[in-house]
């Protein structure tokens, strides 16, 4: 545990350094931490509060206000089901329900084996190919319920 904490402290330190401890860059700092750890560890938030000289309450309010942040550990693969209008009219709800059934979790949670985190996003901006399911950085366009299983299976 000690090594992990030290590693975390160093990484967060580097991120704070990158943004020159500028409190205007709070959102960017949190994004970089999240990109690295897939969520915002508590210790990291404390360090951010000291590093940017902003109250911890502000760090938490920002971390909980924006949808992109998570305070809980997330799975190895992040599934984002697009709920944009273009995807909605083409039936994305059914696709989401199918994924929920397949993984046995609801949107916003993580599978027990930490393999998948299932989330929804308001629009990924690839509307021409709706319904879109984005897994990590990969876009799966024109999704339908019958494609769900094979898409999920392609991730290990």
């Amino acid at each position: 545990m000690g090594d992990e904490n030290k590693e975390l402290e160093e990484t967060v330190g580097q991120i704070l350094e990158k943004y020159r401890h500028d409190k205007g860059m709070l959102v960017s700092v949190l994004q970089d931490i999240q990109a690295k750890y897939r969520y915002l560890p508590k210790e990291a938030l404390k360090q951010v509060c000291q590093g940017l000289l902003v109250p911890l309450s502000q760090v938490y309010s920002v971390a909980t206000f924006f949808k992109a942040f998570s305070l809980l550990p997330r799975g190895r693969h992040l599934i984002n089901v697009c709920l944009g209008t273009a995807c909605h009219v083409r039936g994305t709800d059914k696709v989401l329900e199918k994924i929920e059934r397949e993984l046995g979790i609801n949107a916003g949670s993580t599978t027990k084996d930490l393999k998948f985190t299932l989330e929804t996003v308001n629009c990924v901006g690839a509307c021409a190919l709706g319904p879109i399911v984005k897994v990590d950085e990969e876009y799966h366009g024109e999704m339908s319920t019958d494609k769900v299983v094979s898409v999920l299976k392609s991730y290990t």
Partner: peptide, 8 residues
């Protein structure tokens, strides 16, 4: 550049 946090 500043990146948004996904809030409409």
């Amino acid at each position: 550049i500043n990146r948004g946090g996904g809030a409409f």
